[in-house]
Design a protein around this nucleic acid. Sequence first.
DNA 1: CACAATTAAATTGTGCACAATAGAATTTTG
DNA 2: CAAAATTCTATTGTGCACAATTTAATTGTG
Lengths: 148, 148
Amino acid sequence: MADQPMPHIDQMLCFAVYAAGHAFTRFYKPRLDALDLTYPQYLVFLVLWERDDITVKALGDKLFLDSGTITPLIKRLEARGLVQRRRDEDDERQVRIRLTSEGRALEAKALAIPLAVVEGTGLSLQGAEALRRELLALRARLDGVEER
Amino acid sequence: MADQPMPHIDQMLCFAVYAAGHAFTRFYKPRLDALDLTYPQYLVFLVLWERDDITVKALGDKLFLDSGTITPLIKRLEARGLVQRRRDEDDERQVRIRLTSEGRALEAKALAIPLAVVEGTGLSLQGAEALRRELLALRARLDGVEER
DNA sequence: CACAATTAAATTGTGCACAATAGAATTTTG
DNA sequence: CAAAATTCTATTGTGCACAATTTAATTGTG
């Protein structure tokens, strides 16, 4: 029973992921302050700049977040005039999110951010490719094990 | 200027880290519910089981969190009788955190959790070693670039 | 010793993150 | 076509996470 002692926190993969996530948030903070966006808000815009007029559901699927997180976040962006929310005409259960012209214009300002990340960390998209793939595979495994 | 387009979210390392972190939290949830602990609370106990009678400052350094996060978390654990808080006698600016016997007893119950993680994900401590190292190095780089 | 600078914790306020629930619309089934 | 099941968003409540500020104690310097 006591064969397996409690592992130390420094040896645990989950903690390494947790700490790296916080570090990324802190790292982005000063850059995102220039756009007056939080990190999760920035992620939402990355999706919208890529695919505008998306439902809350589809956005949640993309970001692996639920509506309880996304709804208030989007409402704050709507209050600032960066996005619009409206019910889908065909299926009124769905709410579609669209960029306003102000929200679309943010993209130009945001272009400096990924450049700053590459410069600041020495991480190129290709250089971190293997790490990224492993993390996505890990996420899929963690979320997929639910049904057992 | 437009040489570098906005990268897609699926290509970004920061998002892979972010999503894997949430997936870990979700994965631990049902296991930690058995102990009535949240994931950050579990991390605090991992530290305390390893090194009891630690200051808030040292705990924050270990977990990369500040007192604004730790203080209310610890107070909730104190209210449940799992830890004790008291001022250091030599330096009264510091608050030391100690396990109660109940808090210490939790460790025995918690031993099942790392086993479940290994079983559920197929991740052994050794198997994930390279990934863990890369993430810790990444965290250090992200937190270290602050001064420029 | 006295006064300034530093250190440490707590407090306050904003914003995620998710579980649980509710409510409305659509789809399925008999 | 009507009732039941499903799908989707919103709401409520709890708990991080961090910035900024406040308060208290310690350390350093003359």
